[in-house]
């Protein structure tokens, strides 16, 4: 079995959180789909609520305090991400965006990402396409084709074997395929010397 790291980022704020519920269902489905392809996915969940103060501190001081740094390192080392945000004012939440605002540059480059969101009504579902997808395109990530949106209705009776279940399985399978066909991620070290002094002089 290949070993791959899957990091799940949940920006839900309440307890219990439907955002976290969707995140858990997506990561379980991705784990199963990966196993079928001969990949063991080691899952780590990052709850942004726990890091909210540190995210703002990073914005103000320019460096990540310890717990946030550890989450950022996990993201950089991940072979794939599942990101789930609640919809606030017709977009991703401010906390969700802020977490990605303070990541190291290129931390998400070429990283497969499953995009997901939750809201009270299905009328917000295109947030995935007009807000999340452009954000992750800008970050040079590789969002899988299927993104998953869950409104309050979806958590009703039809969620177990209904349309939401189908979307979760399809998106999870797409993410698992990306994990399977790629080499393990190699995080960028911002302190590594990439050019010698002679190279710097030559490139002037």
């Amino acid at each position: 079995m290949k070993q791959r790291k899957l990091v799940v980022i949940s920006a839900g704020l309440s307890q219990p959180s439907s955002t976290r519920l969707l995140a858990d269902q997506l990561s379980a489905a991705a784990g199963r789909a990966a196993a079928q392809l001969g990949v063991t996915a080691e899952v780590q969940v990052v709850e942004l609520r726990d890091l909210a103060h540190e995210v703002v501190d990073h914005m103000l001081t320019g460096f990540a305090p310890a717990a946030l740094k550890s989450a950022q390192d996990a993201v950089a080392a991940a072979d794939a991400l599942i990101v789930v945000t609640p919809v606030f004012s017709a977009s991703y939440s401010g906390l969700f965006k802020s977490f990605f605002d303070v990541l190291e540059q290129d931390a998400l480059a070429d990283k497969p990402v499953l995009l997901a969101a939750t809201a009270g009504t299905a009328r917000h579902s295109l947030v995935l396409e007009h807000a999340l997808r452009p954000l992750f395109a800008y970050l040079h990530a590789v969002p899988v084709p299927t993104s998953v949106f869950a409104a309050s209705d979806d958590w009703g009776a039809n969620s177990v074997e209904g349309p939401l279940r189908g979307r979760i399985e399809r998106a999870a399978t797409e993410l698992a395929r990306e994990m399977e066909r790629r080499e393990p991620a190699t995080p960028v070290d911002p302190f590594a010397l990439t050019e010698s002094f002679e190279d710097m002089m030559k490139s002037l």
Partner: peptide, 12 residues
Amino acid sequence: IRSPQIAEQAAF
């Protein structure tokens, strides 16, 4: 603070 190029320059 965190530019490896400057550490390299000082070392050179």
